[in-house]
Nucleic acid binder design. Structure first.
Lengths: 218, 218
DNA sequence: AATTTTAGTGAACAGTGTTTACTTTTTGAA
DNA sequence: TTCAAAAAGTAAACACTGTTCACTAAAATT
């Protein structure tokens, strides 16, 4: 009985823990991982640096939590579109654009979630299986839509939904990273006449969808 | 007259400088920017840490030189394909695949060249114009091929070569980053039956090209 | 009320990039 | 060849970083 409700001690602990990630979130959103230091964080919440280690095993663990929270938010946004009952084409295009835009809304979070050439965020035994992470769940939404598109005849029948989804995902990821890294993308030089970012995201999504569509129908 | 040839002093200086970047290159290729420290570098070449600052203004400057050198190599590889006189389709596909493969051959270099959400590697006044960098020159090769493809009728006539090239570039970038970040890509879970990397690069390139092609011709 | 567990801390360890004052070596000219 | 100037190289310090450890103070449990 008593273990169902939460004890005041646990409630206090959670409060401190939350204040840590809240402060971290603030710094991280503005300056990214580079600007985030345990000592700086400690000052912000008026604790000693060592105190933070009673709540997080390491800085990486803390940052991982920020990344995970971001991808949860991204997943929510994706679902908000994907679960609609609008026509397939519009839904698909909306989903692709939403992924990119959501990434751009938290560039530091997004980019940080894709760093490390190794298994630090990969899929070794220590981490949960990829499909379980919100990154993986977001991918499965895309893969589901892909299967639907093939089913409906919008996309070529010979496509493997998983491979096609991975290809599309990579392309979306690329545009997102590009726009994060080159803030003026798709403008490269000052003089070039280029559409605004939103329009370009649409163009990009159109190219991608076109590569999947079955031909010889309007 | 005397300023045409190089003095022994300058030659010595260049030798030391080269030994620094050589050592840096070795470390960077294996462990990336994380494993590279001035002090460690100094130990490797048997100099004091401060000595390195007589050759490079900062660690970032040193690392920038590594990145630039890498992109020069990448540009060379791209040109090796693009300058061939083979049929357009094959050349285009080869170019796209080569970009990705070359990126994967030096994952740390490639990924490092695309970090920083800000203008640290962007296109502010301090840096040379984007089109001048080897990153920009590589892009111009792609854009040239795009124009050629439109000219030849392979690609839709209504495409803007610059925008289309940017879209393709973003997609290539995405696949490269994905494969760097998820070493088993396109395999996500251990059980999934997926093609090898080389094949998947091809599939991805095919999707991209398909999105550009004019329709209703075989 | 006594004991055990937990929260929190100051100080230290082993690193980092970078600067400054200083010495040694090399160079170019009188 | 001698001598001033420039360049090469360094030890030590500054201001940081993540992390650990021995320790105290305060709750929680028995």
């Amino acid at each position: 009985m008593t273990d169902i409700s939460i004890t005041p001690a646990e409630r206090r602990r959670l409060k401190v823990r939350d204040s840590i990630i809240a402060a971290a979130e603030r710094v991280f959103a503005e300056e990214g991982e580079a600007g985030l230091s345990i000592r700086r964080l400690a000052k912000k919440i008026d604790y000693s640096p060592a105190a933070i280690y009673k709540y997080f095993a390491s800085k990486d663990d803390l940052v991982d939590e920020l990344k995970d929270a971001f991808f949860d938010r991204l997943l929510t946004q994706i679902h908000r579109i994907a679960d609609k009952e609008t026509p397939f084409s519009a839904r698909m295009a909306d989903c692709l654009a939403t992924y990119v835009k959501e990434g751009l809304s938290s560039p530091h979070h997004y980019a940080a979630a894709f760093v490390g050439t190794a298994r630090d965020t990969g899929l070794d035994a220590s981490h949960p299986d990829f499909a379980q992470q919100s990154k993986g769940r977001a991918f499965r939404v895309l893969m589901g839509m892909m299967a639907e598109g093939i089913e409906l005849g919008h996309f070529r029948k010979d496509l493997d939904p998983e491979l096609a989804a991975k290809s599309i995902w990579a392309s979306l990821h690329g545009l997102t990273m590009m726009m994060i890294h080159i803030p003026t993308y798709p403008r490269l030089s000052a003089d070039s006449e280029a559409p605004d970012r939103e329009t370009f995201i649409q163009i990009h999504a159109d190219h991608l969808v076109r590569g999947l569509e079955s031909r010889n129908d309007s």
